[in-house]
Computed example of a mutant assay.
Amino acid sequence: MDSSNRNNETNASGFIAPTSNSVEPEFELSTTPGHENVAPLAEDALITDSEPVAKAKKPRTPFQESLSRFRRDKRAMTSLIIIVLMIVIAVFGPFIYHHIGGPYKGDLSTKIIGPDLYHTFDHQELDRAHEGPSAQYWLGTDGIGRDILARLMQGMLISITLAVVVEVVDISLGITVGVLAGYYGGWIDQFLARLADLLFAFPGLLFIILVAGILGNWADDHLSVIPIVGPGGNARLLLISIVLALTAWPLMARYVRGQTLQLKEQQFIEAAKTSGTSDFTILTRHIVPNLFSIVMVASTLNITGTIIGEAGISYLGLGVQPPGASIGLMISDASQSLSAYPWELLVPSLTLVIIVLSFSFIGDGLRDAFDPHSKD
């Protein structure tokens, strides 16, 4: 029997004769009853544990990209560490400092004096005036025997607290006024713009001096009864905080207004309006969150002006009053004996310079991180 007959017999019997040139059959989806959902084996299923599948990395948001750029700014990060360290020292330092050292008997008194007393910012001993740094007084004493380190920590606390209070008011008023003026426009924009121009027309420092000079004694008599403020020369801080905030918010409102004018023309705002979203929801969920970068940068840079303003007012004798302590008041007291004891002036002046430069570098780092095109 020839080969053609053998092939016909094989095909008729329903079997495939194996040959050297036979091709392996392809797997197909079974359509027999009971096997409708059986799929062919995928190639990914053949990957063993020794061949892990690389997961797709989730893209970072613009905010995360900005934070990454800020963390790469060594100058800004160093400044941030310095500010955090100063805050920790100003808040917790006095409680620790009050327990360092032993008691002693004063030369002009038979009373035993402990560290909880001579390490306070308002305790004075005339027989210990103008002492240099020692184991008892780490940074020495001033002209009337007060601990310079204790007064410096109190001064840093005053400056940072005042800056935070002023910025809270500044941000609140600036965002509210700027967003309303930029989003609605019309007579609201005109009214708020004229109000901001009125405050801009009056010099801020002159306005602070005027208010502190006129209402300073009233603040000492009436505001000192407030539990948080209390006596001790700090009563005028509340008055100065209000005045500094009133002079600072128009600039913040102008920044926010300009940014709001750009945001309200974006497509996602138009889409929110078309879908029937209320103005309040658009402002709180779409406009205000997108103002984060400009508000943070402006407020950080404004802190430096606030700290310098408070120091200047206290230096002129219109801010914190004795026996209170502030950096400006320490500079004013030390300037009277500059030639004989320059150390007493160097310590608060250097501290003020470090605080101002640190906040300035942080502001520059935030600006470069959230607006990379600002370098161009």
Rank of each mutant, 00 (worst) to 15 (best):
G140H: 04
V169Y: 01
G324V: 00
D376G: 14
V165S: 02
V53L: 08
L238Y: 00
L283I: 13
V164H: 00
A245Q: 02
V84K: 05
I331M: 10
S20G: 14
Q262G: 11
G174K: 04
L215R: 05
S275V: 02
P133T: 05
F27A: 15
Q321N: 13
I269P: 05
G305P: 01
A17F: 09
L162C: 14
S335Q: 10
I175S: 11
V356G: 01
P33E: 06
L199K: 05
A17T: 13
I209D: 02
R128H: 13
L46Q: 10
G132I: 09
S79T: 09
L41S: 08
P103K: 15
I148K: 01
G102W: 09
L263A: 09
S326K: 00
K55C: 04
P203W: 07
F359T: 01
D44F: 07
A245C: 08
I307N: 00
L239F: 08
D221L: 14
G106N: 15
D107S: 12
S50Y: 01
L239M: 13
W343F: 14
D371G: 03
I226R: 14
V353M: 08
R254W: 06
Y341E: 04
N5P: 01
M86E: 06
P115M: 13
R6K: 12
I87R: 12
Q190C: 11
R75Y: 13
A212N: 06
G102N: 13
A150M: 09
P227S: 08
G309D: 10
D170Q: 14
G182R: 04
W187P: 07
N11C: 09
S299E: 00
A311I: 01
E125L: 11
F92H: 12
G233I: 02
G174F: 03
G185A: 03
A193Y: 03
I354A: 03
S275Y: 02
A193Q: 08
A54K: 03
F191M: 13
I171F: 00
I47W: 02
L29A: 10
P115L: 14
L198T: 15
M330F: 04
I214N: 11
P33Y: 02
N5D: 05
F361K: 00
P250I: 10
T19E: 10
G186F: 03
M156D: 05
L173I: 11
M153R: 11
A340V: 05
V297Q: 00
F121M: 12
T32A: 11
P40E: 08
D122E: 15
S13R: 12
D197G: 04
S66A: 15
D147A: 12
I228S: 07
W343Y: 15
T161M: 08
I83Q: 06
L85M: 13
R367L: 00
P342W: 05
S335G: 10
G312V: 03
P62N: 04
L329E: 02
Q259L: 08
W187Q: 07
F15D: 11
R6W: 06
G213W: 04
D2M: 04
L329G: 06
R128T: 12
H373M: 12
A12E: 15
I112Q: 15
P33D: 05
V38Q: 11
